[in-house]
Every structure is written in C-alpha cells, then in structure tokens.
Design a binder for these strands. Structure first.
Lengths: 107, 107
DNA sequence: CTCATTCATAGCCATCCGGTTATACGTCAA
DNA sequence: TTGACGTATAACCGGATGGCTATGAATGAG
C-alpha cells in the first residue's frame, strides 16, 4: 500500500510510463484500450506499465465488465514533493545560517 | 545545461545516486573520497554517479589540487517540483469543476 | 453456443545500467 | 625525480527492464 519513495522515483523514471500517468492526471479516468491509442507502444506494454503504476500506488483501477478503468491517485505524489522540499530546505537552512553569521559579524 | 525532466527523474531513480545527492544536500560540499566512505560502493562507482548527477545539473564540481569538491545544486529540483505540482493541480481543477457543477445544480 | 472484444500474462530478446577490478592521469610530498 | 595519493576512465559482467508476439481468461454481442 504505502509505496516507498524509491518505488515512486523508479516508476516515474520511465518516459512511457510517466506519460501514461501524466495523461491520467490531465484527462482523468481512462480504459486500457484508450490509453493504448497514442501511447506509441503495444497494449501489453501499457498493461504492464499500469501494473507498475498501481504497485507504486500512483493509479487506481476499477473493473467494469471486460474493461478496466484506470485513474491517477494524486496523493501518491506527496512523498516526492515532500522529499524535494526537504532537500531545498537544507539550502534555505544554510542560507539562514549564513545570514545569521553576517548579522552577528555586523554587530 | 538545462537538464530535461526525464534526465532528472532517471538520475534520481537510483538509490545509491540519490543517497549521494541527498548527502550533498544535507551536509554541503564534499570530496569524492569522503563521499565514498559510507556510500557502500567503490570509488569509481561514486565518481560515475557524480558524473551522472553533474550531467543532470543536480551537482556542481570544483577542482582543488588533486581532489574534486562536489556540491548540490538545489535549483535543479525545480522542474521536478513544478511537474508534481502541475499534476496535483489537475486534480484541484477537477475538484473545482465538480464544485461548480454542484453549485449550478443547487440553483 | 459461438465469436469478437478487452485486458492480463507468459515467454522471449536486446539493451541498459550499476557494480566490479585494473589502470591511466594529475598533483602533492619527500 | 620518485612515489604516494585522489580522481577519472576503461573494460567487463550479470541482472534488471522495456519492448515485442502469442496466448489465455473473462465478458458482451448475436
């Protein structure tokens, strides 16, 4: 369930897979056949990528007769955003420390 | 120079490489030999990862005698953050659209 | 029932990639 | 100059992975 940061990064690293996820984000719920048109790869490949995305918690699937509807799970991006903000946060800390130092030197 | 989003994702996908970047973010500038201690891999591997990070614009290097100092370039994370926010943004738009629809049905 | 449709899985292959050791290159010390 | 040190590169290897085709499984249509 709780996808690791590593899984999320690895899953989004592939351009084809990221494009599928991006399309689900932009256009909402889509079936596999619809996603296959315009994906540039065969249907089995799309299914495999969707399975990866699901494993990483990035998409949900909903069975409906013989077709499966996939949709993006936006909340799954939170760990990625948090990590990035944490990393840039270290920079701000250093900047603050420098500022403090300069202020102290000023006095 | 301007690293593509794909390069950034691919570069950060590897755990070892991401750990090196993370350490540079947390602890600031470090030499290759220092980074090698605790990296869990050999020095050539660290050098190769640093070259990848540099290619993606995630780190800078500074030559100093026979050692090379590497440091994180925090600004390089911006495309990643922007992309993630854009993706979640589509969700908010849909939410707003739903809200609008409900409001209109209410009238 | 029969056949088409939709999707997932299996099996295969080529390529990529992260790891290794060996080595070359440049720099500082003696 | 000689040798030790720090780093980058070369050559190589095994495993992971993204693509394909073929096929199976389940459902809907006729």
């Amino acid at each position: 369930m709780t996808a690791t940061r590593d899984e999320i990064f690895k899953t989004l690293a592939d351009p084809t897979r990221r494009a599928i996820f991006e399309r689900l984000c932009r256009e909402g719920e889509k079936t596999v056949s619809v996603l296959t048109t315009g994906a540039g790869v065969s249907q089995p490949v799309v299914s495999k990528h969707l399975a990866s995305l699901k494993r990483a918690g990035l998409v949900r699937d909903r069975a409906d007769g013989r077709q499966t509807h996939y949709s993006a799970d936006y909340a799954a991006l939170a760990p990625l955003i948090d990590w990035a903000h944490e990393m840039t946060g270290f920079w701000e800390k250093k900047f603050d420390a420098l500022e403090d130092l300069l202020n102290r030197m000023d006095q």
